[in-house]
């Protein structure tokens, strides 16, 4: 299994090390500080503008990774709420035993101060218990709640969220049923086999398939199947997808009541 955010959705140690948003261990001991786990160059910069203390810099272009100035950062948590990617956390290294981790939380129900919760790591695995010490949800955060939990110090680099409460409904694994046929055109109920047969009979275009099989002539007018038909043509004839032009479109291109047109024509 390859590591890294592209493969697992989790930034690797290497990626975090090479980013510019991780504060020093010494700074974490001085009070809460932002930990910016943003390791991909995406067009996004609200963190820069939102920090009241100018502690985050992105600059131009807006795909730059954010730089944290750990001295300017006060650990206020505004950026935690405002990052659209929810990639910013706060860590507060309180003592040898205890640490606080702050994270964005957008699930219902919200936790309350004092709640005991399951603290989870970046993969959603429960690593320890946590106690909710702060829940902030002012209007300015636009419903991204900022939750702080107290955890054993040893887990401060792992814990990045808490388990949400799920309304459980048991789900029985059903027995595997007889396989349904593989439909390509949903409206006219044509299988891959039907399309391939038409190609064997000489169809080389989407229109050719349409005339032979009615694929694309049903109610949705090819909106679901056309690209699948193009793919089958491309695979079977060994020609690039670009060659398969869409079928000829004629009015009406959307489902309408023909009665309306007929009625209105009579009046004219």
């Amino acid at each position: 299994m390859k590591e890294g955010v592209r493969y697992t959705g989790i930034a690797s140690e290497e990626e975090l090390k090479n980013s510019f948003g991780i504060p020093s261990a010494a700074r974490m001991k001085q009070g809460p500080v932002a930990v910016i786990e943003c390791v991909q160059e995406i067009p996004c910069n609200p963190c820069e503008g939102t920090c009241p203390f100018g502690a985050i810099t992105i600059g131009d272009p807006i795909t730059n990774l954010p730089h944290l100035n750990e001295t300017l950062c006060t650990g206020c948590g505004t950026c935690v709420a405002m990052c659209p990617g929810q990639a910013i956390f706060l860590v507060n290294d309180l003592s040898e035993q205890e640490a606080e981790v702050t994270f964005p939380f957008e699930y219902w129900p919200l936790p309350q101060v004092g709640d005991e919760v399951d603290a989870v790591n970046r993969a959603g695995e429960v690593v320890c218990k946590g106690r909710v010490t702060k829940v902030r949800n002012p209007v300015a955060y636009k419903n991204t709640c900022v939750v702080t939990i107290s955890i054993p110090n040893a887990f401060k680099d792992d814990v990045r969220s808490m388990k949400r409460v799920i309304k459980q409904t048991p789900m029985e694994l059903a027995e595997q049923k007889e396989r349904a046929s593989q439909l390509v055109c949903r409206c006219e109920e044509l299988t891959r086999g039907d399309i391939e047969k038409a190609i064997d009979e000489g169809a080389t275009t989407i229109d050719g398939i349409k005339r032979r099989t009615r694929a694309g002539m049903g109610l949705c007018q090819g909106k679901s199947c056309e690209r699948l038909v193009a793919r089958i043509l491309s695979e079977k004839l060994g020609r690039p997808l670009a060659e398969f032009l869409p079928a000829t479109y004629r009015a009406p291109v959307r489902p309408i009541s023909m009665g309306v047109i007929a009625d209105n024509c009579e009046k004219e």
């Binding site: 390859k2 955010v5 592209r6 493969y7 697992t8 959705g9 989790i10 930034a11 786990e37 943003c38 390791v39 991909q40 995406i42 990052c83 659209p84 990617g85 929810q86 990639a87 699930y107 989870v120 790591n121 970046r122 993969a123 959603g124 695995e125 990045r160 969220s161 388990k163 949400r164």
Partner: peptide, 20 residues
């Protein structure tokens, strides 16, 4: 073999325990 969208979106659902 790799995730198509933004890592930060993937990170959110991983933290909620969704296997990708």
């Amino acid at each position: 073999p790799a995730i198509g969208g933004y890592g930060v979106h993937a990170g959110k659902i991983r933290r909620a325990g969704v296997p990708i």
